[in-house]
Structure formats: structure tokens, C-alpha cells
Design a protein around this nucleic acid. Sequence first.
DNA 1: ATTTATAGGAAACGATCGTTTCCGAATCAA
DNA 2: TTGATTCGGAAACGATCGTTTCCTATAAAT
Lengths: 185, 185
Amino acid sequence: MNDALDKAVRVFCERGYHATSIGDLTEAMQLAQGSVYKAFKDKRAVFLAAFDRNKAVRAEKLQDAIGAGGTGRERIRKALAFYAEASHGAEGRQGCLVVGSAAELAIFDDEVAQRVAASLDRNEALLTGLIQQGQADGSIPADLDSAATARLMLCLLQGMRVVGKTGRSRDEMAAVVEVAMKALA
Amino acid sequence: MNDALDKAVRVFCERGYHATSIGDLTEAMQLAQGSVYKAFKDKRAVFLAAFDRNKAVRAEKLQDAIGAGGTGRERIRKALAFYAEASHGAEGRQGCLVVGSAAELAIFDDEVAQRVAASLDRNEALLTGLIQQGQADGSIPADLDSAATARLMLCLLQGMRVVGKTGRSRDEMAAVVEVAMKALA
DNA sequence: ATTTATAGGAAACGATCGTTTCCGAATCAA
DNA sequence: TTGATTCGGAAACGATCGTTTCCTATAAAT
């Protein structure tokens, strides 16, 4: 089922919610229409499940990317690099489900809006934690505003995914990461 | 007609392309269906016209915001503040047509993709110009990578519009701007 | 005043969508 | 082998969408 949801995630990323038909989903998930409606109440339920699945997968990959060791500064760089990697080439063009959901559904679907906000808040909190770790281990100045800096990083990450939809190169995005590290001065 | 297109822009921002019906457009634009189809070939043509109209309006407001005088550094700050202002409260929730188009249409509509890329490129070039002006007037270090820094600013601006959809306060966004200025050190 | 052009608005079209229902095939238990 | 249960897939539903057409009313022009 998770495999099928991963396929659904890709379709929803590429086409958005309203432009993906049930046929698109069944084709991508390799399930019959009957099976889809047996497993999910309706299209929206598939979307919400795909959203949650995507959130879990991306969160795990992000945790793997930033690792357990290293200074807070190094781990911040790895987090930025992780998003840079997802914001170029084919994966960049595929887009981000959180960004797409924020743009398409956040106004008219409270439940989706809540999940989008929760995803962003979670990322913001993770960034804040990394910054505070850096301030504790001395790799980031103690007088830095950790909350505002984490918020800047959050905006930057989401923006990279937007800009990445227009087809940028890995080097372009990697250069952005290097400049962004100045915010930790 | 520009008034009507401005209304169309708002609807497309809030609902996205696929979720806005012709009825939504006629209601917002205060035009009869017949009039819409007399002025535009189809819904997509309305969208493209609205996109262009939005681009012109926002570009003019941005130019007004950054002004003609001041150092490059000051004008960069004004540009960032202009986007911060658009990324909080009700206007923030309304969203950005460029971001929405990038997420929803950039993959399956080459013409829209081209316009989205052009909008981003234009903003990136404008930021690059402001940075280079700052390097010329001494308000920004000469050894700074103007291209990469402008790209970072572009990602940040688009990201602010994404995060702004979840309802942030003016102060939160203003604080991001202050931190972002560190990238010009 | 008559004609012409224009905009508004209703109606109807084909198409597509999400959803439900139904039936045949396959799997597994007894 | 028989029976029950699950799953795939086709068909059909009502609804909605984008689009076209047609008719009326208003205003401009002769």
C-alpha cells in the first residue's frame, strides 16, 4: 500500500489535486478503480493518505541526510543541501506536495491547510533545533535570533522547491546553500 | 478590462487554475459568460491574460517600492520588505499567481511554464542588478557572488509567499528580511 | 425612426469527472 | 470439489465543467 501511495504522491506532485483524475491514480498506483474505492473513501482520502505518506518519507530522508553527528552548523548545511538536491533537474520539476497543496488547497480545505501548516511548523522547529544546537556547540553565534533565522531557512527551502520547478541545475542550487550559510554569521 | 482582469487574478490566486470555473470568473469579473467568450478564446486565454496583467501590476508596484534613489543595499531591503508585506495576513493567504502556476501548470503547459520562468528570471535579474549597484556604490562587498546571492533572494521571496499562505504575521516576515540582509555581508 | 452593432443572459451540447454498482475471476478454507 | 470471500475491471449514474449557440435588449449610427 505504501508503494501505491508513493506513486500517488508523484502524480499529485506533478499534476496537483484537481488535475489528477481517478484514472491517473489507478494507472500510477496500478490498482483497479474498485480497489481504490475499497481502500479509500474518495479521491480526497487518497490525497490525504498520500500527503501523510509523503510527509513521513521526506521526514525520514531528511533525518538521514542531516545525520546524528556533527555540529549544528554542519547539520544545517546538510539540511539545506538536501533541499537543494530535491530542487533541481527532474525531481525539481516534479515539485513538492506541500508547496502544491499550500497553493491549491490551503484556502478551501481546512484539513489540508492544517496539514500544510503542520508540515511547515515541523520543519521550522527542526531548523530551530539545529540552530540552537549550533549555538550550544559554538558553531553558531549565541546572539543570533534562532527563531527568525529558522524561519528564513524555512522560506528559503520552500522557495527553492518553487524555483526548482523551472528547471535549475544542481550547481545553481548548491551555490544558494553556500550563500545561505551567511545567515548563521 | 484591466479591472476585470485584476478580479480574475484574485480568483486564480485563491483557487488555482483548475478549481476556478467559468462561473467563478464571470461572478468575480462581473461579466456575462457571453462577454467573456467574446473577449477571450477560452478559459486558458483568460488565465494567460490575467497572468500577464498580474505580472505588469506587480512589477510596477515593486519598482515603486524599491524607488529610484538610495544605495543598492537599501533598495534590496525594500524589495525584500515588499514581498514580506505581500506574504502575511489576508494578502499572504490569497497567494501568488506565479507560485501557483509553477506548482499547478508548469509541467503540462509549456506556455505557462515559459511565462513562469520568465517572471522568475526577470526578478532574478532585477535582484542581480540591485546587488551590482550596491557593489558599485560600496554598500555591498565587491567580492560577493552577485548571481548566487540574487538567486538566494529569489528563492527566499518565492518561499515567503508559500509560507505566507499558512497565515504568518507581518512581524514574522519582517524579521526574515532582517536576517536575509546578512547574505549581503 | 429605422437599422446596425454590441452586450447580457439563458439554454443546450458534448465531454469528463467522481462515484457507485455489478459481475466475473481468482484465491483460499473446509 | 465445493463454497465463501476478495479483488479486478467494466458499465452506468448524476453532476459539473468548458464551450457554443441563440435570442433579447440596449445603444449607436444613419
